[in-house]
């Protein structure tokens, strides 16, 4: 007892001694006054550092800070379900020009908060449209045609597969992820009618997007069943898919951001990218120009909302002739000649 008290005393003393130090530090790192729009953002459950969707949104904000002088100090990573609305509300009460919610799960929260703050601008990535319900006038619903990008990487995988067998690892088993699977399967079948695609999901809760162990397990299963290229749409879970691909010396396709990294050189065939960063940047830019508009924006191959990676890192994995065919396919989707199914 006595010892505990003395120990506590030391901790308190230490804390007090450090106090002035911290106060001094704070003045050193005073942020530079920004001139651009003030932007707030609330992250999805995956949070910053998922090397995927949330990080892409964050890159968009950083670009806005660098090029438009935007103030991006107000970002929140919420914990449980009710925190999302509460976090949005907290930001809405501040003097901000535009507030982002990153992820479909924000749809209802944004609707509610936007209704209570009609003078504020909101934007929601992957906003889920509801039958018969309009998007509030002060909300910009950013949607991506993931199926179009997935179609292209599906065709690419089928052209390159030696086993005529491909894999798809989805995160959470929901309609949004089904779009990736549908596009991938359609693209693969288009390129090679005899192809066989194994489709599996990591789980049924939000945790399915941050479970690399499960991702690796699923991928190893698919490779052992003869698949030689796996496409994942599973957030951080996909890190396990890449590990499995490296172990088995097979190929994997990344998602959302360019997921090539030095340690996965020769493993990541390409990535189906979703230009969340660009859409975030464009929305901030519109605010700065005074041209911001609410409503639905659907971004596909045509709008450069989705695409695939072809650069110095994966050149040698994709023959030029295959790349040409892929580009031709892309043009036919953009022209509307090929319609890509969503499910």
């Amino acid at each position: 007892m006595k010892r505990a008290a003395r120990w506590m005393g030391w901790v308190m003393f230490g804390a007090l001694a450090l106090l002035p130090l911290g106060c001094a530090k704070k003045q050193d790192s005073k942020p530079v006054a920004s001139t651009g729009p003030r932007v707030g953002l609330v992250f999805d459950v995956g949070g910053r550092g998922d090397q995927s969707f949330n990080d892409s949104a964050w890159r968009g904000l950083q670009k806005a800070q660098a090029q438009l002088g935007a103030d991006i100090a107000n970002v929140v990573e919420p914990g449980e379900g009710s925190d999302r609305e509460s976090a949005l509300r907290g930001l809405a009460a501040k003097d901000l020009d535009l507030i982002f919610g990153v992820g479909f799960i924000f749809t209802d929260d944004i609707d509610r908060v936007a209704g209570d703050f009609p003078g504020k601008h909101f934007a929601c990535i992957d906003y889920a449209l509801k039958d018969g319900a309009a998007v509030p006038p002060n909300v910009l619903a950013l949607k991506f045609k993931e199926e179009e990008g997935s179609f292209l990487v599906g065709a690419l995988a089928a052209w390159l597969s030696k086993t005529h067998r491909l894999g798809f690892v989805g995160g959470m088993d929901i309609a949004l992820i089904h779009k990736f699977a549908a596009g991938f399967q359609a693209g693969a079948k288009y390129a090679d009618p005899n192809v066989n695609v194994i489709v599996k999901y990591a789980g049924v809760t939000g945790d399915a997007f941050k479970n690399p162990t499960k991702g690796k397990e699923l991928a190893l299963g698919m490779y052992s069943e003869g698949a030689d290229i796996i496409f994942h749409a599973s957030g951080a879970t996909g890190q396990g898919v890449f590990e499995a691909a490296k172990d088995q010396k097979k190929l994997a396709i990344g998602v959302d951001s360019d997921q090539w990294r030095p340690e996965y050189d020769g493993v990541v065939l390409t990535s189906m990218i979703k230009n969340v960063d660009e859409s975030v940047f464009q929305a901030v830019k519109a605010v700065k120009a005074g041209a911001w508009k609410g409503g639905v924006q659907e971004l596909g191959l045509k709008e450069n909302g989705v695409g695939y990676v072809y650069d110095a890192h994966n050149h040698r994995l994709i023959p030029a002739e295959i790349h040409d065919r892929l580009e031709a396919l892309k043009a036919r989707i953009i022209s509307g000649e090929i319609k890509v199914p969503k499910e």
């Binding site: 308190m12 230490g14 007090l16 450090l18 106090l19 911290g22 530090k25 704070k26």
Partner: peptide, 21 residues
């Protein structure tokens, strides 16, 4: 409360923020 606020303050200080704020 007193104890935990102080322990928390150490962490806040460690990343260079002002615990009082």
């Amino acid at each position: 409360l007193g104890f935990s606020l102080l322990v928390g303050a150490v962490f806040v200080l460690a990343i260079g923020r002002d615990p009082v704020a």
